[in-house]
Amino acid sequence: MDIDNISELIPQPVPLRDIDDSPGPCCMSFGFDLNPLIQSIEKVGLINPPLLKRDNQGSITIIIGYRRIKALKSLKADGAGCRILSGDDILPVECLLLNLYDNLAVRKLNDVEKGMVLARLIPWIKTLEIVEHYMPFLGLPSNRATLSSYLKIEEEMEVRVRESIACGQLSLRNAIMLLDIDSISRSSIIDLISNLKLTVNQQRQLIEYTVDLSHIQGRPIPDFLDDQSIKEINSDTRMNNPQKGRALIRYLRMKRYPSVSKAERKFKKMISRLNLGKTVKIDHSPSFESPYYRLEVLFKDGQSLREKLENFMREDIDSLRDPWKKKK
């Protein structure tokens, strides 16, 4: 059978119990919700017959239609009309590509699934071709570093982490940061991320600060995250999740950057001593790296500006200084 003629294959009934539905070498489905498909099959039946492969020993694996078979099995169906190829008719790489094109024609793959595709292509296709052809095809930047990260996620990450990526809870960039730590530490970080529903930015900070602090303090990450202060934030019933998330990041940042945090606090205190009202604001540069501070005045016209500036000048502005410097 020529693979160009697959559409001409006549579907034939296959008992579902004979079909191996473990995620095989062609599978590129992960972290999906089966319910819409189940409902659709319940309503209108199976529209597109899955494509299966029967090998010389008679065992049947799925080339296309992994989710459909899963849905049918969960509906407790006995069998389904499927197209079947013999193992001799098709090369493993052809099975893989058939499934890839079939999937991409009907849906977007999530990041874990993209990693699955890339990992399955590696044994068959030259790295350069994967980078130049298949990565853009999957909507990925065409470079080796990205390929490397996707493969690592596929090869090394536990199911739980991959589930977080697939459902969009954990960003891929942050997942890449987790690659460098051990699985127990990863798991305790993922716990916090999912309990507090941290934003992408907070996830990045959480990972960065905890990895750094565990190095600095010479303590394993799970041990560090078990600190009383973190537990208290986590279990504080007066705060909702976003508030807890912010409190946690604030706490970790203070631990990781004590001098910067101290300077920020002192600066805030210095400014609060001036009576600036709501329309005048003084800010420092990020981490005080620039030597300049910024004064912002909200005014309606020239006269109101003059008044505000005159009021401002009456304040003790000579007391403003870099917060790490001693009072003159």
């Binding site: 600095i216 004590p258 910067v260 981490s287 005080f288 790296e289 620039s290």
Partner: peptide, 26 residues
């Protein structure tokens, strides 16, 4: 990754004006 035992990253590094990480100014 290459030097897991190193302590050189322990300091308080902030983003400099040139995009590099450097110690907090003071």
């Amino acid at each position: 990754r290459r030097h897991p035992e190193t302590s050189i990253l322990d300091g308080e590094f902030v983003l400099g004006l040139d995009g590099k990480m450097r110690y907090f100014k003071p």
